[in-house]
């Protein structure tokens, strides 16, 4: 018994934390804590019952999620739209960020020209560009994709610059000494040693892409997880808003885990660092 606990300590304590939190939440919505503390606090205890319209509750959220997934199926359409925006946005961000970052890391002069933009863009909240994007391309799919690109491209490009900068100069000498041409040097030395940086950039990009989904769908979007949350919020359908939050969290965790799997496979050669 004790052995079982020690072996799974992390999972057990994590589950206990989550369950305790859910019970606490449910109790506020159902007035359990108000009833329980009535003898102690008197009329003040009524304050511990919170209106579900504001905080919803785990059971309500579960019911709403069940409805949206299996009964009405409404969430799939939103998921599809957001997924499309996210895929296009992140793919574009990778297609721009990786070549740009690698080139800026390799060619010093290009980095001098590009770095001011990266630094400035990194220092501003990119969602500030949303009004401009709407002016330029309207509130359609293009706008939502572009805001995701804008958010996701930075960590990717910055990661790629750092990747090239930290390539072991001795390995470049080895390649040069064996008369490797630039293409081979890139393929055999720079790319393999860049992998951890590129994947770290991609991980950050996933999180920022999720922000892009929500923010981009605030204006004039009829479908998508962010739009659904926005509409549900304005109708005080708190349950649905939480379902949206959960959906994004699950998708984000899933994608990051996927990237971690890729990393583990590509980086299998790396010595295991003791935890």
């Amino acid at each position: 018994m004790r052995r079982f606990y020690l072996q799974h300590e992390r999972a057990i304590l994590g589950a206990v934390g989550i369950i305790a939190f859910l019970i606490l939440w449910e109790g506020f919505a159902r007035g359990w804590w108000a009833e329980l503390l009535q003898p102690l606090l008197g009329p003040q205890a009524a304050r511990l019952q919170l209106r579900p319209i504001f905080i919803s509750s785990p059971t309500r959220i579960a019911r709403a999620a069940f409805d949206m997934i299996f009964v009405t199926g409404a969430i799939w359409k939103d998921f599809g739209w957001s997924g499309l925006e996210f895929t296009l946005g992140v793919a574009l961000a990778l297609a721009i960020g990786i070549p740009l970052g690698l080139a800026a890391g390799w060619y010093r002069r290009l980095s001098y020209a590009v770095e001011p933009f990266l630094t400035a863009l990194n220092a501003t909240p990119q969602v500030a560009f949303l009004p401009l994007l709407i002016l330029w391309v309207g509130t359609g799919l293009a706008c939502r994709v572009l805001i995701i690109v804008l958010l996701a491209v930075l960590p990717i490009a910055i990661g790629a610059v750092a990747a090239v900068r930290t390539v072991d100069a001795r390995l470049i000498r080895v390649a040069r000494s064996f008369s490797a041409n630039d293409a081979l040097l890139f393929r055999s030395i720079i790319l393999p040693s860049s992998v951890p940086f590129l994947l770290a950039g991609a991980r950050l990009a996933v999180g920022r892409g999720m922000i892009g989904i929500v923010v981009g769908e605030i204006y004039g979007s009829a479908a998508g997880i962010g739009a659904m949350m926005n509409q549900a919020g304005s109708r005080f359908e708190t349950d649905k808003v939480f379902v949206g939050v959960l959906a994004i969290a699950v998708a984000g965790v899933g994608l990051v885990e996927g990237l971690r799997r890729i990393e583990r496979r590509v980086e299998a050669w790396r010595p295991q660092v003791a935890a």
């Binding site: 001795r170 390995l171 080895v174 081979l184 980086e267 050669w269």
Partner: peptide, 22 residues
């Protein structure tokens, strides 16, 4: 080279082959 300067992501055989690939 002075430091072995081996490609850490390649095996012994992969490193020895490297020059031939170049």
């Amino acid at each position: 080279f002075q430091d072995a300067s081996l490609l850490p992501w390649r095996t012994v055989l992969g490193n020895v082959r490297y020059g031939l690939e170049c």
